[in-house]
Amino acid sequence: MSLDFLAGFTIFMLALIMVVSMVPGLLAGLESSGIDYDAVAYRTGVILVEDPGWPVYPPWEMNDEVHKDEIERIGLAVSKDTPNILLSTKVETFFNDSFFTPDDYRNLAIFGDIPYSYHFSLRSLDGVTYNEETGDPLPPGYGYIRRVVKIKEPGVAVINGTTFAPQYTSLSSNQEFIVRLDFGQLLDPSVGAAYRIDPRTEPVNVTITNFGAYLNMTEPSTNATLRTVTFWKKDPTRPIPQFTRIPFAYGTTDSSLYTLTIDGNPYDLTPDTKVFDNDNISLVLKPAATSLFTLDQNSILDIRFNFGDTPSQTNITGIHHYDYNSTNVTLPDLQTGVLEVAVW
């Protein structure tokens, strides 16, 4: 009796152990979780690469730390009609992991029911211009997608004295130099979103180099004093259109709104400082500042550089148009890169 029971029970236990040991193999063969990870990675890739995010205007990347909860969805595309073409300002904000917390990435880009771990990386083909990543190191068995993208970078107006001085100097100079942005022309829909100069989403970059060529040659001067940089706007749809000075905290340095450097040193917009003949004046006007100016798609924005010396030390004058003319503004080529999304 006891021998019989022992034999029967042993056979049962042996079979049970065999079956139990087969179960994990059954699960591993299916890898159902891996399938889910790939689907989540695919979806996240689509959200990032094919969508501009929400809100679109003002764009989500302009929200600062205080207004971060107004961001509803992160997308890096220039517009919804240009899949795979990413905007450099969105890319920079996205990979700024002191701005976004891991939970932000999960809630605004991955949209999973469970807190997935993630790793995002973007690298341009040259490996130098863009080489960004965020997230945890990759474990084995993650869901993955790779997307090939192009990255749009903002244009730069380099106003080099050696080429532009004949055009922008005059003996009867009022010592004022204007860079003019005509939004009606810049935002014209005939230029595709991938090649548009849009100061509402991208920084405006004005650099005056070789300043010596603009100096007063009859006086002979070695420097001129840059008194102020001011912003003026005109709305042509108004009854009597005229330029008005935009109220702005000109005396406060705020690198989230603008940066002004003279010979590499930062200044506010009332520098009152001497510019020598080998110095560069560089102004970057960020979209956050442009949004404060309440401009619409017909407005004209002037950036006015005022020099003031008696007697006049510089002959600089005239209006430089910030437009699609490639001698006025250099638009960089789109950069090819790869965006990888890994989720587990």
Binding site: L30, S32, I35, D36, A39
Partner: peptide, 10 residues
């Protein structure tokens, strides 16, 4: 069932 979910997504 879970395998089917992944299959249908792909």
């Amino acid at each position: 069932q879970s395998a089917l979910v992944g299959q249908t997504t792909a």
